[in-house]
Amino acid sequence: MEQRKFIVEINHLYKSYRRGSQILPVLQDITLDIAEGEFLALMGPSGSGKSTLLNLIAGIDKADSGSVRVGGLDITALSETELAQWRHSHVGFIFQFYNLIPVLTAFENVELPLLLSGLSRKERKEHARMALRIVNLADRMEHYPSQLSGGQQQRVAIARAVVTDPVILVADEPTGDLDRVSAKETLDLMERLVHELGKTIIMVTHDPRAAEKAHIVRELDKGVLNADIQAGH
């Protein structure tokens, strides 16, 4: 196996939540490196802290201690505003329930993150069209989310995630709400993003079929990361 550099480096990460006077430890001493172009699946029982870890990697939550480096930058040191800007240019998000804006068309949903970039109107349109072509929905651009199937909505969401050309994609149970056929389509698409576009994907999943697609499967149990399980690649 050739030597690849790590895009994500997590060192001794701790995270707990406070519930009233009680402190609930969620992540304990997580150390994890993810190479560029990797497709990593995080598995584990419900409540084990998978989403929390994903959120910390994606810069939408704050750790108690430890560091998360993405592309060499320690994001735990960033302020809220810096984090928002960083997320916009470095992270693509894929959610279980797609989370499209219902009043916007597929095309407008994909274009939405580009409003924050310095792109011209024309460039935005081109990028959004391109992203929709990648997910094979060029013919559904003017449809509203309610006019699309779950699988199609998830593909729009994936187009929205890649339109800013981020270095990492985080997906929290992306197939959790999909039927088998749509789930497979979604996973195939994610695999293509890794192989053809060189994206790094970190995916939380319960679905063994989803995990099968991943190069590496890591398991969280009660906030502790278990040893590597090499997937069938």
């Binding site: 994606a58 928002a84 997320r87 240019s89 998000f93 804006i101 993150p113 924050l116 929205r160």
Partner: peptide, 9 residues
Amino acid sequence: AIMKTLGFG
């Protein structure tokens, strides 16, 4: 929350 996630301030 989604918009904030996407980087909107």
